[in-house]
């Protein structure tokens, strides 16, 4: 685990929402998807994933539905709700603002 960067605090919800905006997925699929999209840099701990999913469910940003997978097992598929999409956009814009701001601070003045 050492050497792998930790998830920026507060970004997990956003990542899950973004992942779900592409397709409905089960928990394992979400973890896998984040891992793959980040080229194995970001690993979502199961210990954070499931509590986060419950939180999103309660907020009404995602919806859970039990479906059967290709392998014939029952799994809960999460889909983004309209409120979730709105929340995702909000978080994305806030995140971009934040990144831009951090980038400005980190840039060396000579380069400007």
């Amino acid at each position: 685990m050492a050497g792998k960067p930790d998830l920026l605090p507060g970004t997990l919800d956003m990542l899950i929402l973004k992942t779900l905006s592409r397709a409905a997925m089960h928990g394992y699929g979400i973890a896998l998807s984040i891992k793959r999209f980040s080229d194995d840099v970001l690993t979502v701990e199961e210990g954070s994933l499931y509590p986060a999913l419950q939180r999103l469910l309660v907020q009404g940003w995602v919806k859970g539905e039990w479906k059967t997978t290709e392998t014939g097992r029952r799994a809960r598929y999460y889909t983004l709700t309209a409120a979730g999409r709105k929340q995702l956009n909000l978080e994305l814009s806030q995140f971009e603002q934040m990144i831009t701001a951090i980038g400005r601070v980190l840039r060396d003045p000579q380069e400007a």
């Binding site: 394992y28 499931y50 029952r74």
Partner: peptide
Amino acid sequence: ELDEEMAFHRAQM
């Protein structure tokens, strides 16, 4: 439901 979900997760892994 949570149990089942997590069991599924483990099975996938």
